[in-house]
Amino acid sequence: MRSGSTAAACAALVRRDLTLVWRRRGDAANPILFALIVVALFPLALGPEPEQLRRIAAGVVFVAILLAGLLALDTLFRSDYEDGSLEQLVLSPHPLSLLLACKIAVHWFTTALPLIIVSPLLGELLHLAEPLRGLLPLALLLATPLLSLLGAVCVALTVGMYRSGMLLALLVLPLYVPVLIFGAGACNAAQAGLPFAAPLLWLGAALVLALVLAPLACAAALRISLS
Protein backbone atom coordinates (compact mmCIF):
# COMPACT_ATOMS: atom_id res chain seq x y z
CA MET A 1 0.00 0.00 0.00
CA ARG A 2 1.24 3.46 -0.72
CA SER A 3 -0.14 6.93 -0.39
CA GLY A 4 0.64 9.24 -3.27
CA SER A 5 2.79 12.30 -2.72
CA THR A 6 1.22 15.67 -2.07
CA ALA A 7 2.68 16.98 -5.33
CA ALA A 8 1.01 14.14 -7.23
CA ALA A 9 -2.29 14.91 -5.51
CA CYS A 10 -2.05 18.60 -6.43
CA ALA A 11 -1.15 17.70 -10.01
CA ALA A 12 -4.13 15.32 -10.23
CA LEU A 13 -6.44 18.01 -8.88
CA VAL A 14 -5.13 20.67 -11.27
CA ARG A 15 -5.44 18.28 -14.21
CA ARG A 16 -8.97 17.32 -13.22
CA ASP A 17 -10.13 20.91 -12.78
CA LEU A 18 -8.60 21.98 -16.10
CA THR A 19 -10.27 19.03 -17.82
CA LEU A 20 -13.59 19.99 -16.25
CA VAL A 21 -13.25 23.60 -17.43
CA TRP A 22 -12.47 22.32 -20.92
CA ARG A 23 -15.51 20.02 -20.92
CA ARG A 24 -17.70 22.93 -19.77
CA ARG A 25 -15.95 25.48 -21.98
CA GLY A 26 -19.27 27.08 -22.93
CA ASP A 27 -19.68 28.23 -19.34
CA ALA A 28 -16.06 29.36 -19.18
CA ALA A 29 -16.75 32.12 -21.71
CA ASN A 30 -19.51 33.64 -19.56
CA PRO A 31 -17.34 36.07 -17.54
CA ILE A 32 -15.75 37.47 -20.71
CA LEU A 33 -19.12 37.95 -22.36
CA PHE A 34 -20.48 39.61 -19.24
CA ALA A 35 -17.56 42.05 -18.97
CA LEU A 36 -17.76 42.80 -22.68
CA ILE A 37 -21.47 43.56 -22.48
CA VAL A 38 -21.09 45.82 -19.44
CA VAL A 39 -18.25 47.79 -21.04
CA ALA A 40 -20.02 48.01 -24.40
CA LEU A 41 -23.14 49.45 -22.76
CA PHE A 42 -21.37 52.45 -21.23
CA PRO A 43 -20.76 54.36 -24.49
CA LEU A 44 -24.38 53.71 -25.42
CA ALA A 45 -25.59 55.18 -22.14
CA LEU A 46 -23.13 58.06 -21.82
CA GLY A 47 -22.66 59.06 -25.43
CA PRO A 48 -19.64 58.52 -27.64
CA GLU A 49 -17.49 61.54 -26.61
CA PRO A 50 -13.95 60.10 -26.29
CA GLU A 51 -12.97 62.61 -23.58
CA GLN A 52 -15.77 61.61 -21.25
CA LEU A 53 -15.23 57.88 -21.82
CA ARG A 54 -11.47 58.19 -21.38
CA ARG A 55 -12.00 59.68 -17.92
CA ILE A 56 -14.00 56.70 -16.67
CA ALA A 57 -12.42 53.95 -18.79
CA ALA A 58 -10.09 52.37 -16.24
CA GLY A 59 -12.68 52.42 -13.49
CA VAL A 60 -15.38 50.89 -15.67
CA VAL A 61 -13.11 48.09 -16.88
CA PHE A 62 -12.06 47.39 -13.30
CA VAL A 63 -15.66 47.23 -12.05
CA ALA A 64 -16.76 45.09 -15.00
CA ILE A 65 -13.98 42.58 -14.38
CA LEU A 66 -14.66 42.56 -10.65
CA LEU A 67 -18.34 41.83 -11.23
CA ALA A 68 -17.57 39.19 -13.86
CA GLY A 69 -15.30 37.52 -11.32
CA LEU A 70 -18.06 37.69 -8.73
CA LEU A 71 -20.37 35.97 -11.21
CA ALA A 72 -17.91 33.10 -11.65
CA LEU A 73 -17.04 32.86 -7.97
CA ASP A 74 -19.90 30.61 -6.93
CA THR A 75 -18.77 27.87 -9.33
CA LEU A 76 -15.52 27.48 -7.39
CA PHE A 77 -16.80 24.86 -4.95
CA ARG A 78 -20.46 24.47 -5.90
CA SER A 79 -20.30 21.36 -8.08
CA ASP A 80 -17.66 19.75 -5.86
CA TYR A 81 -19.95 20.29 -2.90
CA GLU A 82 -22.99 18.88 -4.64
CA ASP A 83 -21.39 15.73 -6.04
CA GLY A 84 -19.45 14.87 -2.90
CA SER A 85 -15.96 15.55 -4.30
CA LEU A 86 -15.39 18.11 -1.58
CA GLU A 87 -15.77 15.46 1.12
CA GLN A 88 -13.17 13.40 -0.69
CA LEU A 89 -10.82 16.40 -0.76
CA VAL A 90 -11.29 16.99 2.97
CA LEU A 91 -10.70 13.31 3.69
CA SER A 92 -7.58 13.09 1.53
CA PRO A 93 -4.33 12.66 3.45
CA HIS A 94 -2.87 15.85 1.97
CA PRO A 95 -3.05 19.39 3.41
CA LEU A 96 -6.47 20.72 2.51
CA SER A 97 -5.23 24.29 2.28
CA LEU A 98 -2.69 23.31 -0.37
CA LEU A 99 -5.30 21.46 -2.42
CA LEU A 100 -7.62 24.45 -2.16
CA ALA A 101 -4.81 26.78 -3.20
CA CYS A 102 -4.49 24.65 -6.34
CA LYS A 103 -8.22 24.87 -6.96
CA ILE A 104 -8.19 28.64 -6.49
CA ALA A 105 -5.19 28.94 -8.82
CA VAL A 106 -6.96 26.97 -11.56
CA HIS A 107 -10.10 29.03 -11.03
CA TRP A 108 -8.12 32.26 -11.34
CA PHE A 109 -6.28 30.93 -14.37
CA THR A 110 -9.49 29.99 -16.17
CA THR A 111 -11.77 32.89 -15.16
CA ALA A 112 -9.61 35.93 -14.38
CA LEU A 113 -6.67 35.48 -16.74
CA PRO A 114 -8.86 35.48 -19.88
CA LEU A 115 -10.42 38.71 -18.59
CA ILE A 116 -6.99 40.28 -18.16
CA ILE A 117 -6.09 39.21 -21.68
CA VAL A 118 -9.16 40.91 -23.13
CA SER A 119 -8.79 43.96 -20.88
CA PRO A 120 -6.87 45.98 -23.56
CA LEU A 121 -9.82 45.40 -25.88
CA LEU A 122 -12.25 46.47 -23.17
CA GLY A 123 -10.11 49.56 -22.59
CA GLU A 124 -10.08 50.33 -26.31
CA LEU A 125 -13.89 50.31 -26.36
CA LEU A 126 -13.75 53.20 -23.89
CA HIS A 127 -10.80 55.07 -25.44
CA LEU A 128 -8.50 54.16 -22.58
CA ALA A 129 -5.73 56.76 -22.21
CA GLU A 130 -2.38 55.86 -23.75
CA PRO A 131 -0.29 55.67 -20.51
CA LEU A 132 -2.80 53.24 -18.99
CA ARG A 133 -2.55 50.59 -21.70
CA GLY A 134 0.23 48.80 -19.86
CA LEU A 135 -0.75 49.78 -16.36
CA LEU A 136 -4.34 48.50 -16.39
CA PRO A 137 -3.43 44.85 -17.12
CA LEU A 138 -0.64 45.10 -14.54
CA ALA A 139 -3.03 46.40 -11.88
CA LEU A 140 -5.50 43.65 -12.80
CA LEU A 141 -2.73 41.08 -12.58
CA LEU A 142 -2.22 42.10 -8.96
CA ALA A 143 -5.87 42.67 -8.10
CA THR A 144 -7.64 39.66 -9.60
CA PRO A 145 -5.70 36.94 -7.71
CA LEU A 146 -6.46 38.89 -4.56
CA LEU A 147 -10.15 38.96 -5.49
CA SER A 148 -10.10 35.21 -6.18
CA LEU A 149 -8.43 34.42 -2.86
CA LEU A 150 -10.70 36.66 -0.79
CA GLY A 151 -13.72 35.42 -2.69
CA ALA A 152 -12.76 31.78 -2.16
CA VAL A 153 -12.90 32.21 1.62
CA CYS A 154 -16.41 33.64 1.36
CA VAL A 155 -17.54 30.91 -1.06
CA ALA A 156 -16.17 28.29 1.31
CA LEU A 157 -18.24 29.80 4.11
CA THR A 158 -21.48 29.86 2.12
CA VAL A 159 -21.21 26.74 -0.03
CA GLY A 160 -23.22 24.64 2.41
CA MET A 161 -26.18 26.98 2.26
CA TYR A 162 -29.07 26.74 -0.09
CA ARG A 163 -29.30 29.74 -2.44
CA SER A 164 -26.33 31.54 -0.97
CA GLY A 165 -25.82 33.95 -3.89
CA MET A 166 -27.06 37.08 -2.15
CA LEU A 167 -25.21 36.32 1.07
CA LEU A 168 -22.03 35.66 -0.89
CA ALA A 169 -22.27 39.05 -2.59
CA LEU A 170 -22.84 40.77 0.75
CA LEU A 171 -19.85 39.00 2.32
CA VAL A 172 -17.55 39.60 -0.60
CA LEU A 173 -18.23 43.23 -1.46
CA PRO A 174 -16.66 44.82 1.64
CA LEU A 175 -13.52 42.80 0.95
CA TYR A 176 -13.52 43.72 -2.73
CA VAL A 177 -13.93 47.45 -2.18
CA PRO A 178 -10.35 48.13 -0.96
CA VAL A 179 -8.95 46.10 -3.86
CA LEU A 180 -11.01 48.16 -6.28
CA ILE A 181 -9.96 51.43 -4.64
CA PHE A 182 -6.27 50.61 -4.84
CA GLY A 183 -6.42 49.07 -8.32
CA ALA A 184 -8.54 51.72 -9.98
CA GLY A 185 -6.80 54.34 -7.83
CA ALA A 186 -3.44 53.48 -9.35
CA CYS A 187 -4.91 53.90 -12.83
CA ASN A 188 -6.54 57.21 -11.96
CA ALA A 189 -3.32 58.51 -10.43
CA ALA A 190 -1.37 57.56 -13.54
CA GLN A 191 -3.95 59.23 -15.74
CA ALA A 192 -3.62 62.43 -13.70
CA GLY A 193 0.15 62.25 -14.01
CA LEU A 194 0.64 61.48 -10.33
CA PRO A 195 2.87 58.74 -8.84
CA PHE A 196 0.98 55.47 -8.88
CA ALA A 197 3.48 52.99 -7.42
CA ALA A 198 2.12 53.13 -3.85
CA PRO A 199 -1.34 51.66 -4.52
CA LEU A 200 0.21 48.94 -6.67
CA LEU A 201 2.63 48.07 -3.90
CA TRP A 202 -0.26 47.90 -1.46
CA LEU A 203 -2.01 45.49 -3.79
CA GLY A 204 1.14 43.41 -4.03
CA ALA A 205 1.56 43.30 -0.27
CA ALA A 206 -2.08 42.32 0.24
CA LEU A 207 -1.70 39.64 -2.43
CA VAL A 208 1.29 38.09 -0.67
CA LEU A 209 -0.60 38.11 2.60
CA ALA A 210 -3.68 36.56 1.00
CA LEU A 211 -1.63 33.91 -0.80
CA VAL A 212 -0.44 32.68 2.57
CA LEU A 213 -3.54 33.15 4.70
CA ALA A 214 -6.54 32.74 2.41
CA PRO A 215 -6.04 29.00 1.66
CA LEU A 216 -5.80 28.33 5.39
CA ALA A 217 -8.95 30.33 6.09
CA CYS A 218 -10.61 28.65 3.13
CA ALA A 219 -9.82 25.18 4.49
CA ALA A 220 -11.18 26.08 7.93
CA ALA A 221 -14.32 27.57 6.41
CA LEU A 222 -14.93 24.51 4.23
CA ARG A 223 -14.64 22.18 7.20
CA ILE A 224 -17.33 24.26 8.92
CA SER A 225 -19.50 24.21 5.81
CA LEU A 226 -19.27 20.44 5.51
CA SER A 227 -20.22 19.75 9.12
Binding site: G4, A11, H94
Partner: peptide, 10 residues
Amino acid sequence: FAAGLLGLRS
Protein backbone atom coordinates in the same frame (compact mmCIF):
# COMPACT_ATOMS: atom_id res chain seq x y z
CA PHE B 1 -8.03 11.45 -10.10
CA ALA B 2 -8.95 9.46 -6.99
CA ALA B 3 -5.72 7.50 -7.28
CA GLY B 4 -3.74 10.73 -7.54
CA LEU B 5 -5.53 12.25 -4.58
CA LEU B 6 -5.80 9.29 -2.23
CA GLY B 7 -3.00 7.04 -3.46
CA LEU B 8 -3.13 3.63 -5.06
CA ARG B 9 -3.25 0.23 -3.40
CA SER B 10 -0.22 -1.68 -4.63
